[in-house]
Computed example of a mutant assay.
Amino acid sequence: MSFLRTASLFAATLTTGLTAGLFAAFSYAVMPGLGRTDDRTLVLAMQRINESILNGWFALCFGGALLFTLLAAALHVGAGHRAVLPWVIAALVLYLLVLGVTAVVNVPLNDVLARAGDVDRVADLAALRQRFEVPWVRGNAVRAIASTAAFGLLAGALVGPGRLPG
């Protein structure tokens, strides 16, 4: 059981960290870079990114972060293993915030771009960009901060009280 507790916590930390890295990279590199482009480039690039991100690797990280964190929490409920439970629960709450923002802000905005269709047939690319860019960037910033904090908490749980031989 000790191996399963550690393995689940490690998997939660790894998948949360990979997800946090993705959202952070969008915050400090991808969106600022696209923000310096014209309307057509931003819309087309985000349409293609939104299409290509729906793959097994993303699903493993994005969904795995939730599942592995839930598993780690469940496996640390027993007496003698609760020292890291508050860290794991706090990480879980932050990751639930990430999921909520994704579902309420980012995915609906991605869907707006998808429904717009071929960028060469969009009547007003500037209006489409304006509707999408600022709220998507703000939502992603929340996801980046919350998932990075969750990653830090899970990393702390890995090395926290009761985890390392001492």
Rank of each mutant, 00 (worst) to 15 (best):
A12E: 08
T102P: 06
A7T: 00
N110K: 01
M46E: 14
L94G: 00
A126T: 12
N50D: 11
L22D: 02
L44Y: 09
L75Q: 13
V105N: 12
V107G: 03
R138F: 06
V101P: 11
V159G: 02
R129G: 06
F3Q: 13
V142A: 12
A59R: 09
L128R: 04
G152H: 02
Q47T: 05
A73R: 01
Q130F: 11
W57P: 01
A74F: 15
G166K: 07
W87L: 15
W87R: 14
T6A: 15
G100E: 08
S2A: 15
A116N: 04
T41Y: 10
V98P: 09
R5V: 06
C61I: 00
G17H: 07
W87C: 11
A72S: 13
A157R: 07
D111R: 14
V142Y: 09
A146M: 02
V101S: 06
W136L: 05
G80L: 11
A59L: 10
L71P: 02
V93A: 15
R121C: 11
V30M: 09
G78L: 11
Q130V: 01
L99Y: 13
A90C: 07
A79N: 14
S52I: 08
I145C: 12
A72D: 10
G17Y: 03
G156C: 06
L113W: 05
L128W: 01
R5Q: 13
A20P: 00
F23T: 02
N140T: 10
G64E: 04
L70R: 00
T69F: 09
L158D: 01
L70P: 02
P135W: 08
A123L: 03
R115L: 09
A24W: 12
G117I: 06
T6W: 08
M31N: 07
A123E: 12
L85W: 04
T148M: 15
M31R: 10
L125D: 01
E133Y: 13
V119S: 06
A123I: 05
P32Y: 14
I145R: 04
R36G: 15
Y28L: 13
I89P: 03
D39H: 10
T41R: 14
A157V: 06
G78F: 00
A74K: 07
Y95T: 01
D111T: 14
G17V: 06
L92D: 05
N110F: 01
F3T: 10
L153W: 07
L4I: 10
W136Y: 03
L67R: 02
G21Q: 11
G162H: 00
A144Y: 03
L67W: 08
T37M: 13
L153A: 08
N50I: 00
V84E: 09
F10C: 05
L94C: 13
V98D: 03
V105Q: 09
Q130I: 03
W136D: 07
L164Q: 02
L99N: 12
Y95G: 03
L85C: 09
Q47H: 05
A91R: 04
A126D: 12
F132T: 00
T13F: 04
A149N: 07
G152N: 12
R163Q: 12
